[in-house]
């Protein structure tokens, strides 16, 4: 029970960080609303698009390239997640055996990377 609480305590900085992010963002919004002058014009009410006048609607379809990128991201993200428990154990439990099996795992995904690369899927357009 005591150990349990101590383990969670390790995540306290994360909670503090999160609280600071929310507080900072919230404070910025509240303070500018309270202190800033409000003289709205039509131009000021336009959506912000890098400072130029909005060129077209934001509700248009996006390129399929985004979809491909996201799918490939998932594949290599799932690969990376296996490294977490492996990294915990490799030094004191798995030793050389673990090193070899992870090398095979990564080599097979290296083939995937090579395929994706050669197919030009990493190029935009």
């Amino acid at each position: 029970m005591l150990d349990w609480t101590r383990m969670l305590f390790a995540y306290l900085p994360l909670l503090v960080f999160l609280a600071m992010v929310v507080a900072f963002g919230g404070a910025m919004t509240v303070v500018t609303t309270l202190l800033g002058p409000r003289r709205p014009t039509r131009a000021k009410g336009l959506p912000y698009e890098c400072g130029i006048i909005p060129a077209e609607t934001a509700r248009r379809r996006f390129s399929v390239s985004f979809y491909l990128t996201a799918m490939l991201f998932i594949v290599f993200d799932v690969e990376a997640i296996f490294l977490y428990p492996w990294a915990v154990l490799v030094r004191h439990t798995l030793h050389i055996f673990g090193l070899v099996e992870m090398a095979i795992f990564i080599a097979l995904l290296g083939v995937a990377l090579l395929y994706v690369w050669r197919k030009g899927a990493l190029e935009w357009n």
């Binding site: 491909l68 799918m71 490939l72 594949v75 097979l108 995904l109 990377l113 395929y115 994706v116 197919k119």
Partner: peptide, 11 residues
Amino acid sequence: LLVAAVGAVYL
């Protein structure tokens, strides 16, 4: 995962 990558490229 390799098959998934191939499938994503194909799709």
